[in-house]
Design a protein around this nucleic acid. Sequence first.
DNA 1: TTTTAATATTGCAATATTACGATAAAGATG
DNA 2: CATCTTTATCGTAATATTGCAATATTAAAA
Lengths: 109, 109
Amino acid sequence: MGASKTDFFTDKQNGIATLTKALAHPARIAIIEYLVKVDSCICGDIVNELPLAQPTISQHLKELKIAGLIKGNVEGNAICYCIDEKAITKLQDYFANISAKLQKKNTCC
Amino acid sequence: MGASKTDFFTDKQNGIATLTKALAHPARIAIIEYLVKVDSCICGDIVNELPLAQPTISQHLKELKIAGLIKGNVEGNAICYCIDEKAITKLQDYFANISAKLQKKNTCC
DNA sequence: TTTTAATATTGCAATATTACGATAAAGATG
DNA sequence: CATCTTTATCGTAATATTGCAATATTAAAA
């Protein structure tokens, strides 16, 4: 095949997988880190920052946006991208919850 | 192409991307959640738990293992899998750090 | 030793991702 | 209006992922 059997998993599981999938590429991690670093979100210079062509960056931004990890504001002919905190919080909470549950159990390995 | 240009990113960025990539599939999220749920890690019944064939589960487990998210202990002819807390902690810390940094800045969007 | 049980590996088809050149679209600027 | 700047989209080649049947491997059990 090649297509994920998303139908068989819960919405929550698919939701987390959508977020992790959006971050499953070093370029997209680099984009997120760049957006964290520059506190104002005058973007587009992401293209200058990363060693990838403009269409490639644009495509990565699209994926991050569809997944809900970033938001884009049109400002004249430029677009201002920035991180959507809610998505980061969701991931943070998800892993914190797993961590907490693991603490309570005696892992056998 | 189709291959990620990992050479151009930092080890840390590639490291996070490796972890998120390993979790970038609902089946692998479901496996992690199952391992959290059953506090003893008598595994292999993951195959019974999920709607995927045994070779498929085996392949997903392999990916999680290579990424460092789970550990496997041979116990007789069965194998006991369990979560590697360090990887979860790494992800938790990573997103907590981003969250903290975002709090200090006035996001423009 | 033969059989059974649990897991891994191989091979392959279907599909998805990654990357980028070429080009389009849309607003700013002269 | 013509042009420049910025970003998006299209088309396409290279590669990766997903899923499973068939088969191999390994160790326990009979």
